[in-house]
C-alpha cells in the first residue's frame, strides 16, 4: 500500500508563544519548531500500518518555508520512506484552500492509496486542509480517525464519535484526518536520525503548483495573549464542610454557574 502523509511545521508545544509588536504575528526568533502534534499521530498510524505490512511505503509532504525541511527529517527519522518540500515565496502565508490545492497537485502525481494528515494544525487550529484536499481531489474523506486497516475491497476506517466509533469502508483512495493513534508517536532511533540526515529531500516551488498565490484568504486583524486570569479566592485551613458550603453558595450566587 502507498501512504502519503501531509504535515505542517508549527511552534513546538513547549514554546511560550508571544505576540509580536505588530500585533498581527507571533515572535518566531529563536523558537523551537516541531511537527504539529496531530500530524505526528498521522505519521504514527501510517508507520504502524507499515510495521504490520512491510510492503507499505510512507511518503511525507509539507508546504512551508525552508525551515520545514527539519520537520521532514524528523518524519524520515521516525521511519518514513521519502519526503518532499513544497516551498517558495508565499508558502508560509498561504491559506487553507490554497494549501490544499497545491498539495493536491503533488498527490495527483504521487498517486497514493490513502492520504493522511492531522485533523488540525496546532498553530491555526483550523482543521480545513484535510477536507479541502479531499474535495480538490474529488475523493471521499473520513475525519477524526483513530485507526484503519486494509480489507478486501478497500480500507476500513475508524472515526471517533460520542460513545464509540463509526467504522466506514472506503472502496478507493480517501483522505483521513487523524485524531489519535493508539500508541504514542514513536521516538526515532539514532540510526534512523543518521539515515534521515543523509536522505535527499526534493523541493517543489509552490507557484508552479497553483496559479493564484495572491488570492485573498483570511486577514488577521489582531493577535492578543489570552486575558490574564486574576488570582481568585483561595480557601484553605478551614473546616472542610464549611468550605464546601461556602463554595457551593459562591458558585450559585457570585459566579452564577450552577
Amino acid at each position: 500500500m502507498k501512504l502519503l502523509v501531509c504535515v505542517k511545521q508549527v511552534p513546538d508545544s513547549t514554546v511560550r508563544v508571544k505576540v509580536a509588536a505588530d500585533k498581527r504575528t507571533i515572535v518566531t526568533e529563536g523558537i523551537t519548531w516541531a511537527i504539529s502534534p496531530y500530524d505526528e499521530y498521522a505519521i504514527e498510524l501510517a508507520l504502524e500500518h507499515k510495521d504490520a505490512d512491510p510492503g507499505t511505503t510512507v511518503s511525507v509532504v509539507t508546504l512551508g518555508p525552508a525551515r520545514a525541511r527539519d520537520a521532514l527529517r524528523q518524519a524520515l527519522a521516525m521511519g518514513c520512506d521519502d519526503a518532499m518540500l513544497v516551498t517558495g515565496a508565499g508558502a508560509e502565508t498561504l491559506g487553507g484552500l490554497a494549501t490544499a490545492r497545491a498539495l493536491a497537485k503533488v498527490i495527483e502525481e504521487a498517486r497514493p492509496d490513502l492520504v493522511l494528515c492531522g485533523k488540525q494544525a496546532s498553530d491555526d487550529d483550523q482543521g480545513l486542509v484535510g477536507q479541502a484536499l479531499a474535495e480538490t481531489l474529488g475523493w471521499p474523506h473520513v475525519a477524526i480517525v483513530t485507526k484503519f486497516t486494509s480489507v478486501t475491497g478497500g480500507t476500513e476506517i475508524w472515526r471517533e464519535v460520542e460513545g464509540g466509533h463509526e467504522v466506514w469502508k472506503a472502496a478507493g483512495p480517501a483522505v483521513l484526518t487523524v485524531q489519535k493513534s493508539e500508541k504514542d508517536p514513536r521516538y526515532p532511533s539514532l540510526p534512523g536520525i543518521m539515515k534521515a540526515k543523509k536522505k535527499e529531500i526534493p523541493e517543489k516551488d509552490v507557484s508552479s503548483l497553483i496559479p493564484d498565490l495572491a488570492s485573498p484568504g483570511l486577514e488577521i486583524i489582531s493577535l492578543e495573549p489570552p486575558p490574564v486570569r486574576k488570582a481568585g479566592r483561595v480557601m484553605k485551613d478551614g473546616d472542610v464542610k464549611a468550605m464546601a458550603a461556602e463554595l457551593a453558595k459562591l458558585l450559585r450566587d457570585e459566579a452564577k454557574v450552577v
Binding site: 513546538d12 508545544s13 513547549t14 514554546v15 511560550r16 523551537t32 516541531a34
Partner: peptide, 10 residues
C-alpha cells in the same frame, strides 16, 4: 525540544 526534561518553556 525545550532544554529540560519536563517540557517547560525555555
Amino acid at each position: 525540544r525545550a532544554g529540560n526534561p519536563w517540557g517547560e518553556p525555555r
